[in-house]
Amino acid sequence: MAMLEVKDLKVNYGLIQAIKGISFELNEGEIVALIGANGAGKTTILNTVSGVIPSSAGSIVFEGKDITKISGHKIVSMGMAHIPEGRRVFANLSVYENLKMGAYTRKDKAEIEATLKQVYEYFPRLEERKNQPAGTLSGGEQQMLAMGRALMSKPKLILMDEPSMGLSPLLVKEVFSIIKYCHEIGISILLVEQNAKMALGIADRAYVLETGNITLSGKADAMLENDEVKKAYLGV
């Protein structure tokens, strides 16, 4: 059974149907990429899965539990973290306070400290700046913070929305190495990216999204060779 199963999902914004009945799944340990142009509905899908916005039809099943109607704040403690588009760190709180906020649903104090140590180990820059307000960090550092904050909840699955947005090519590489690291420590990842080349390079499988519909799906490396994908998303 897949870890995350989305079936016939439909999402409306007022009268506009943004997602027109899509189905996809993610198996434990996988990196699955959703690629597509601006406005295809990638962010809407992530927001619906994590419960930020309601769906109008279809079902979302996470680890065997139907979470379609469960409100967003309850989903974190089930093991799903969502790194939103634009990072959304708490700008006036310090780096440390941001990370602590990531562990909001956890009660095991000693364990939280251990996770914090791990996060600092992987992102030494966050430890150097732990007392600085998050709003003063650079874009790349904010992305690290958003990732560290998600890791603080000890997730089994992370939804990542455009982690490379607005970053320099060098930082994009760094961010992708962090995604790889999350994968190596056993976290499954649902990745939304406009940078299709990088996303397909790291993913196991991928879905191509066009104006609310899935038009193509398959192994990521096969998709890198697909002529349509090459033309539309890889600029080859």
């Binding site: 704040h73 403690s77 708490f90 700008a91 709180l93 990531g102």
Partner: peptide, 15 residues
């Protein structure tokens, strides 16, 4: 504090 900064992001923290 978290809700006052960003309601949606706070919800993603489980608040």
């Amino acid at each position: 504090l978290a809700v006052s900064e960003d309601k949606d992001a706070a919800m993603l923290m489980g608040i």
